[in-house]
């Protein structure tokens, strides 16, 4: 067979065009992020690229800005709590869907995806509106909102981990005398531990990157990092933003690689490689 068959039937020229298109697309995809990282080392006020020098000035600025640092910490805590909440609740839901309501699985899975199908702006205003009716602390509402938008991801990720668990392992444990709780604790949970950890990390990333929920629910001293940046950028824009976002990007790349090592990112993103 000629080699061109292996690349899906591009002829020589179309193949060149194809390769160029793919390269340009990657350039398009990555340029804005790479440029942010370069800009963060800019010594001047301008959001300019190419940079005119090299300095850590904006990282200092970030570290010394109370507003940004406290927003960063707030986002961190919020993300951790939301991730734990969404992973725990998501595990229970995924487990129930597979083990108790297996026949209604399709329907159940679709229902858990609900927050993905509603624009996040609407989720957010609903939460604000809820606060006018029910007295709830704003931060708690924000946390609940983040748990809600993380749940579709955690449920889907844990579902696919659970799918990979051999039912016979649980059956074997049952016949050996283990109660359902014991089986869950001693067999199921250890087997899906990588999936749970990935769900945790992914939920953290979703929460940390969220703008829409926090946009309506942030208050003084309880502002998430993206909102602090957004508010700042509405008035001015200096490379301090580049420094902050570079830190954020670095953090996310590390976390993303961790997921990749654990279960494979594609798994979490529910990108199907095989025919169903």
């Amino acid at each position: 067979m000629p080699r061109r068959d292996e690349i899906g039937g591009w002829g020589a020229l179309p193949r060149f065009i194809g390769a160029a298109a793919v390269t340009l697309t990657y350039l398009f995809l990555l340029a804005p992020i790479v440029i942010v990282i370069f800009t963060s080392f800019n010594p001047t006020e301008a959001n300019a690229f190419p940079p005119t020098g090299l300095s850590l000035r904006w990282y200092h600025e970030f570290a010394e800005s109370d507003g940004f640092v406290s927003a960063f910490l707030f986002s961190l805590w919020l993300g951790i709590l939301a991730a734990i909440g969404a992973t725990a609740i998501g595990f229970l839901a995924a487990y129930a869907l597979l083990r108790f309501f297996a026949r209604r699985r399709e329907l159940g899975q679709a229902l858990t995806m609900l927050p993905m199908m509603i624009p996040h702006v609407l989720i957010s205003i609903s939460l604000v509106f809820m606060l006018t009716v029910v007295e709830l602390p704003e931060t708690l509402t924000l946390l609940l909102g983040h748990i809600i938008i993380c749940l579709p991801f955690t449920v889907a990720g844990i579902l696919s981990s659970l799918d990979a668990v051999d039912r016979n392992l649980e059956h074997a444990a049952f016949t050996l005398g283990a109660s359902r709780a014991r089986v869950m604790w001693e067999v199921t949970l250890p087997l899906i531990a990588p999936g749970l950890l990935s769900a945790l990390i992914f939920a953290f990333i979703v929460s940390f990157g969220d703008v829409y929920i926090a946009l309506f629910l942030s208050g003084p001293g309880k502002t998430t990092l993206p909102i602090e940046i957004f508010n700042y950028m509405n008035w001015q824009s200096t490379p301090v933003i580049a420094a902050i976002t570079s830190v954020q990007v670095a953090m996310i790349v590390v976390l993303g690689l961790a997921i990749e090592r654990l279960v494979g990112l594609r798994h979490v993103m529910r990108i199907e490689e095989t025919r169903r």
């Binding site: 992020i33 690229f49 580049a242 976002t245």
Partner: peptide, 14 residues
């Protein structure tokens, strides 16, 4: 995964 803000800011720089 890097969030909307990061990428929007990238475009402002560009």
């Amino acid at each position: 995964m890097s969030g909307v803000i990061v990428r929007t800011y990238g475009w402002i720089v560009l």
